[in-house]
Nucleic acid binder design. Structure first.
Lengths: 133, 133
DNA sequence: TCCATAATTCGAGTATATTCGAAGTATGGA
DNA sequence: TCCATACTTCGAATATACTCGAATTATGGA
């Protein structure tokens, strides 16, 4: 994922309404939800919701599918995962930024500040145990 | 993490310069980097950088520590992880949004759309294998 | 005490995002 | 063909964010 696309995705999520909509869709699964349903859930005028759905769509965070008169929006999980990857890529310089983020080759002491010893190429951050919210 | 705090953090990251700074710090590790160093790396005027560092700081994404005349900024990994948690919480309604996201109790067929059977309470999303960027 | 360096705050000009009523488009059914 | 429903686009008022030179604050050393 490129930095421009990441900024677009983050901008799309950086808004109370859009974040709610996105989470709703993330939790709704592949089938997604019709605009009217989201509208009721969130409680904003259709024109406003439409504007926000477009932003999410441009950012590649949601998909649309028509079924009759209804448009079903669903979360694009790939983009979400790519976004997370981008943020955590090559993180913490060989340290442990969270319990499940362990360096590739050697274990580092936690009390002192070590110089970078062995760099990881792919991260293993943010597993279940790392979740703090 | 509360939705307001999440929006603040996402807003902070949703900017080309700040995203670069944050990634730089994520990769720099606990010791962090002095403002001058970041300034050179990114290539923007000190006043602008200061503005952006403040945004990141307010969002809880970075820490500051003074050492003599230098201010060292470092990434706040906890906030980053909390942010990721928030986005992926209860995702995909029992489906598999990525290869490492498996439902808690039973395996679901992939070809048809199943109704929610068993809901996960904590997610196991976005491990190494899930990274797509 | 005085100067140089490191970084922040001020402030004003500029750019971008948000809101939502009204008007428009697409679809299904009578 | 005509109407109701579902949703989007238009557009203009409003709000918020960004940039960065100049002024200010903090620290260390002579």
């Amino acid at each position: 994922m490129e930095s421009k696309a990441v900024v677009t995705a983050l901008t799309a999520l950086a808004h109370e309404t859009r974040l709610s909509v996105f989470r709703l869709l993330v939790q709704a699964g592949q089938e997604g939800l019709a605009v009217g349903t989201i509208c009721e859930s969130i409680g904003i005028p259709p024109a406003s919701l439409s504007f926000h759905l477009k932003e999410l769509s441009i950012a590649g965070l949601v998909n649309v599918r028509r079924s009759g008169r209804y448009l079903y929006y669903s979360a694009e999980y790939e983009t979400m995962n790519a976004l997370i990857s981008y943020l955590t890529e090559n993180c913490c310089a060989g340290g442990t930024c969270n319990p499940s983020c362990t360096p590739v080759s050697i274990e580092l002491p936690k009390t002192e500040k070590p110089k970078v010893v062995a760099k990881k190429s792919t991260r293993t951050t943010t597993k279940k145990s790392a979740r703090t919210s």
